[in-house]
């Protein structure tokens, strides 16, 4: 089936079997191997990309269902101005092996946009006011991204610094 994907602001036409996931379309059909395949079952978050601005698991998405959608992968982060987040991951030791990092980065960007829109989380004390980006909020909101090197403190610190700066909010420990 012929589809068009807008990936990192470039249009790509692809002729795909409907079984091809968005993840496999990126990696195998377009050579964009920055997005990683961890569990391939929606449990680890390594495949997280932004689709029309929202983070999703690319492994559970059929590519043909995203015909015409705007997709941002780790390869496109620099031009979205997210290189500061990548630098924060380096500064805070937000990885060891680095395999989960592309998914962590995309997920963090999607998550911070959700906070900007005022979405509550499971750990938000109240559903009413605008959520404050605490360490506990980051941990809860990033729980769909596993890191088997267990770099969670560094990941949290990196997102806290980047998100805190972008948000103008504090990143005090609430946990």
């Amino acid at each position: 089936m012929l589809i068009t994907l807008d990936i990192n602001r470039a249009r790509h036409s692809l002729d795909l079997d409907p079984r091809v996931t968005l993840l496999d379309a990126l990696r195998h059909h377009l050579g964009l191997t920055g997005t990683k395949k961890g569990c391939d079952h929606g449990q680890c978050g390594a495949c997280t990309v932004l689709v029309n601005g929202r983070r999703i698991n690319a492994c559970l998405a059929l590519a043909v269902m995203h015909d015409g959608d705007q997709i941002i992968t780790v390869e496109g982060l620099e031009e979205t101005g997210a290189s500061a987040l990548q630098k924060a991951f380096i500064a805070h030791d937000g990885f060891q092996c680095g395999y989960c990092t592309p998914g962590q980065l995309c997920s963090a960007l999607g998550m911070l946009e959700e906070v900007r829109q005022g979405w509550p989380s499971h750990v938000s004390p109240s559903l009413e006011p605008h959520p404050v980006l605490t360490r506990a909020e980051i941990a809860e909101r990033m729980s769909g991204n596993l890191c088997r090197c267990a770099c969670y403190p560094g990941i949290n610190a990196a997102i806290s610094e980047f998100g805190g700066a972008a948000e103008g909010t504090t990143s005090e420990d609430a946990a």
Partner: peptide, 10 residues
């Protein structure tokens, strides 16, 4: 909010 992950809920 108690279910799944941010990616899955999207």
């Amino acid at each position: 909010l108690a279910g799944a992950s941010g990616q899955l809920r999207n």
